[in-house]
Amino acid sequence: MKLDPELSVEENDQVYRPAEDSYLLLRALDLGEATSFLEIGTGTGLIALHAVRWAQTVATDISPFATALARGNAQKNDAALDVVRADLFHGLRGAFDAIAFNPPYLPLRPRGGWLDRAWSGGQGGDEVVLRFLRDVPPFLAEGGAIYVLLSSRNREALRTVRTDFRSQEVGRESLFFDEIRVYRLRPA
């Protein structure tokens, strides 16, 4: 999807600000015929606010600051976005045509604080995304696709997307210290 400069997306110091990774995931996301979309870890809600014009969209985040900001941004843009505070898929049910996640991927231990949890992915940077990849299959509708962003350092997650899914790289960008890639995944 293309970034819509007309959207008004507020940011604040308590919520991960849209950065290269957010925009890479947005550009790679192709909702096609999808009628339902789930974004995990929505942050400001930027991606979900683009998706809501295409599909019935649910946006989640574990941070209370992110869910409040995303809901505020939805209201500012008159978007019918459902925002839910949840830890990955716990508390959700149903099947979605597309699911997207820009996970915390830096190899840092979370030291506490909601913002820190937006980028600290634990050992190897992929502890959260590995949980996501383990839990996602039953939430995907027949013919649906998962969009997930990974860093070149997330070695275990990179192995998992290749062995447990049919994966296709649909975006790539070099940052200072690593390379980030977006994969489109379908069940193997």
Binding site: I62, P64, T67, A68, R71, V83, V84, R85, A86, D87, H90, G91, L92
Partner: peptide, 9 residues
Amino acid sequence: EDGIPNLLP
């Protein structure tokens, strides 16, 4: 609260 269900366990 404020339209947001909190489903954290």
